[in-house]
């Protein structure tokens, strides 16, 4: 019995930052890398199943990223995942969700997991496509925004609850194996102590290239291209107070300022 949990290392932004010279992304210096918030929940869900079932369940975490991404992977391993897989190739620098899903589909072929848990989305780009695309490529059932899960390892189906718009919830049964995109709040993710993260270095991590998975650069070419990234100019608001006459005077002054009169 095996659960594959693909995770992502996301970038979070300082409140003061500068753009890269080419204007297509933020300067790396202003980004802090971390494990995607949603993935804390998908990893936790897999670990809860593992703990409830005893140790016959193996939790494998996979990440697509360069050496830097080891930190995020190790955080997941420190929490209790059994081993990790890291896939990287320079051709993946601009990979989109679908490209990542192609790689994950190869990993599923290789690992033959019984379930795949992804985060509902990434907390930096928020496309929410990887899980869906992976299910499509595998021809597996998929459920998005899963907020509750009842699943016994080895069962042929799982019962889950999903959050819908407008405050509705949906309970459904899904055939296994399946790809589930896990929503925030489904559980209470555990803390990975720094000691645990360091010790997770001893856990096995397979480092794979595109070659190892039988893919080449053209298979993972992104379907889109970022042309520009920028911080929109901020507007300005002012609460005008005082008597009607004072308010009118202030308003007239603002109009004059804007029109340059």
């Amino acid at each position: 019995m095996k659960i594959l949990v693909p995770v992502k290392q996301i970038a979070s932004l300082d409140d003061q930052f500068e753009m890269r010279d080419d204007g297509r992304d933020v300067d790396e210096d202003y980004l802090e890398k971390d494990l995607n918030e949603f993935d804390h929940f998908s990893v936790e869900e897999a670990l809860l199943i593992k703990e409830a079932a005893g140790d016959e369940v193996e939790v494998v975490v996979a990440i697509v990223g360069d050496d830097d991404a080891d930190d995020a992977l190790r955080t997941a391993l420190a929490k209790g995942a059994d081993r990790g897989i890291r896939v990287w190739d320079d051709a993946l620098a601009n990979a989109d969700g679908t490209s990542i899903a192609r790689i994950l589909a190869k990993l599923v072929e290789r690992e033959k997991p019984d379930m795949v848990f992804t985060g509902a989305q990434s907390s930096d780009f928020g496309s929410a496509t990887t899980g869906m695309a992976l299910a499509g490529l595998l021809g597996w059932p998929h459920a998005a925004v899963v907020s509750n899960l009842e699943y016994k390892p080895g069962a042929s189906s799982a019962t889950l609850r999903r959050e819908l718009e407008g405050g509705l919830e949906e309970v459904m049964t899904i055939k296994c194996p399946a790809v589930l995109s896990i929503q925030l709040g489904i559980n209470q993710p555990r803390y990975a102590s720094l000691r645990g993260i360091k010790q997770a270095k001893q856990k096995p991590v397979d480092e794979l290239s595109l070659d190892d998975l039988g893919l080449d650069a053209s298979d993972v070419a992104p379907a889109f291209n970022v042309r520009k990234m920028y911080a929109p100019q901020r507007g300005k608001a002012e609460l005008i107070t005082g008597s009607a006459a004072e308010q009118a005077a202030r308003l007239a002054q603002i109009i004059k300022e804007i029109r340059g009169m």
Binding site: Q188, P189, R190, Y191, S193
Partner: peptide, 27 residues
């Protein structure tokens, strides 16, 4: 702490300390 047996409110603080070396969640 090793067991994760603590008030979850502490998690963001400890994560911030791991990431940014301060307890206030600041960059």
């Amino acid at each position: 702490i090793e067991d994760g047996n603590f008030d979850t409110i502490l998690q963001p603080t400890l994560k911030s300390l791991q990431k940014s070396g301060n307890s206030l969640g600041e960059n």
